[in-house]
Design a binder for these strands. Sequence first.
DNA 1: ATGTAAATAT
DNA 2: TATATTTACA
Length: 343
Amino acid sequence: MGSLIAQGLTLDCSPPSKAWTPKSTTEFLAEVSRLDNVSEKISKLDDYVNRLQDEMKKIDAFKRELPLCMFLLNDAIARMKEEIMRCQSSNCEPILEEFIPLKKSSSDDEKAGEEVKETDIVDRREKMNWMSSVQLWNADSNKKRKEESVDRAAMEELFRGGKSSRTAGKAFSPFKGCSNFLAMAVGKEGRDEFPAAPSLSLRTLRLRLNGRKQRRCWSPELHRRFVSALQQLGGAQAATPKQIRELMQVDGLTNDEVKSHLQKYRLHTRRVPPATNASAAVLWASQEQCGESSKPSNSQSSSPQGPLHLSSRATSVTGGDSVEEEDDDNKSESRSWKRESHV
DNA sequence: ATGTAAATAT
DNA sequence: TATATTTACA
C-alpha cells in the first residue's frame, strides 16, 4: 500500500527521446533528497515534473481509457510540485522518503478525475494494490516476478476473455505489464466482445503496445447482427461496411472489422453452393471458434439470444434475381461456405 | 471509405 | 493445411 504511486510512467512505447532512466517517485525523491544544493534539487524536481507532464500529454488522448494512469501521473506531479515548493519556501527540509500514498492532490487531481466516479476510484484503489505488487514498469526493486506472471495471466484472461497467447510468451513484449494496466484501465467496460465505449483510442493504444490488434471474434450473435444489418441494407453487395457497422450498433466494433467480415461473407456467399443441405442453413452463424470463454455478454440494447427481427422480405424471394441487390444474401447467405471440396 | 490482396494468427 | 482476421494498398 505504500509505494504505489507512479513508477515507470512510461506508458508510451516510444521512450523519451533522451536516455533517461525512469525512476519511481520513491527512488527519485530519495535521490533528490541526497543532494545538498537546493537549486539543484529544484532543478531535478522540475525536470521530473516536466517529464511527467510530458507523459501526461501523451496519454491525454487516452485519459478516458486510462483514468488510473492519469490519476497516478497527476498524483506524482502534484507530489513533485509540492516537493519543489517545500524546497523553495522552507529551507528545503527533508524530502519524505516514504511519501503519502494517496494525497488528495486537489487541483491536479480534479483534472484527472474529470469523469471518474468516486465509486470507481475506490475500485481502483483496490486494483492499485495488486498493481503495486505487480510492479508493472519498474524493473528493479521487484522480486515478485512469479506473482507478476500469475497476475498478469489472470488479468489477461479476464481481459481478452480467453486466449492469452498473443504476445504472452513471444519474445516481443515491450511492456509486459501494459496489458495488465490496460485491462485494469478498461475495467468493467471493455471486457467482452462489446466494449462499452473505447472504440478507437483504446485500440490504438493497445496497438502500440502489443503491435497487433486483438482478433475480433465473430460470435454467432455478432454475425446475426451483421446479417441483419446486411438485409436492412439490401444485401451484401449493396451494404457498405460503415453502414453495416452503424446498424449493428456494437460498441467497439470497428469499420475495418466489419469490412473484413463483409469481405469474407461476400467471398463465401457468391454463387449459391446449392447442394449443401438446407440443414446447413446455420453455417455462417455457427463459426464458434471464439467460443472459448467469450460469450456474447451483450450489453447492448438487444438481447443476446437473438431476437433481431428483420422481416423485410425473407420469404418474398422471387425465383431468381428480382432486385439488383439482395439476390444472394437472403438465401444463399446461410448456405455453405464450409464445403470440403477444394482442388 | 471501400474493395481486395497479402500477411498473420489459430 | 485451411480459415479467420488483420493490415497494407490502390
